[in-house]
């Protein structure tokens, strides 16, 4: 792990814990946006720019704006406490889950290991890398998988986004967006 990666992991961990602990919702939203930005940089460092852009645009951008808009319509509880009181049974349950998940980490292949199954398997990853340009004529294999090889799935996703917009109108009992 390089110093940059280490710093980012610590930053993401601290902001994640702070998001859970801050009592003031506005502070929690701002720290959560910082967490998303840290994750986006971490994805970039791990050479996943498509995921990083989604995290930066959706996680740090749109989600924060929608959350800010939501709390602007609520009243802030009057309290001088900086942090939420820690709920001990909850902390124990979350720590136990984290421990169980962390036991799987030593068995995961190293970052960038060419023998890792996710990279070396000939039927999925290597197939797309070798055939994408000949099959579709585009250079970004991620786009090719989303729009061509799995086009019907992406159609389903697009309709889900559409349905989410409609559902919001239904829940808010409105007939117009703007």
């Amino acid at each position: 792990m390089t110093p940059l990666e280490g710093t980012l992991v610590v930053f993401v961990f601290v902001t994640a814990v702070a998001t859970a602990l801050f009592r003031d919702v506005l502070s929690a939203i701002i720290v959560f946006a910082a967490y998303s930005l840290g994750m986006a940089i971490l994805y970039t460092v791990l050479l996943a720019p498509d995921v990083a852009m989604t995290e930066a645009a959706i996680g740090a951008g749109v989600t924060s704006i929608l959350l800010l808009l939501t709390i602007a319509k609520t009243s802030r509880p009057a309290s001088d406490d900086l942090f939420e009181e820690i709920h001990v049974p909850g902390l124990i349950a979350v720590s136990a889950l984290a421990l169980v998940l962390l036991t799987t980490v030593p068995d995961a292949p190293a970052v960038g290991d060419p023998a890792a199954p996710v990279w070396s398997n000939p039927d999925v990853t290597q197939y797309y890398i070798q055939h994408t340009y000949d099959d579709t004529g585009v250079q970004n294999a991620v786009t090719a998988v989303l729009a061509a090889y799995r086009g019907f799935d992406t159609f389903g996703e697009a309709v889900v986004v559409f349905a989410a917009g409609m559902a919001t109108l239904l829940v808010l009992n409105r007939e117009v967006f703007a």
């Binding site: 749109v62 704006i65 929608l66 808009l69 939501t70 319509k73 697009a158 986004v161 559409f162 989410a164 917009g165 919001t168 109108l169 808010l172 009992n173 409105r174 967006f177 703007a178």
Partner: peptide, 20 residues
């Protein structure tokens, strides 16, 4: 779709619940 839904979500949330 994505641009439209985000703009729509924003304004719908800003306007809030429409009561009878």
């Amino acid at each position: 779709i994505v641009a439209g839904v985000f703009i729509g979500l924003f304004f719908a949330t800003a306007a809030g619940l429409h009561r009878e």
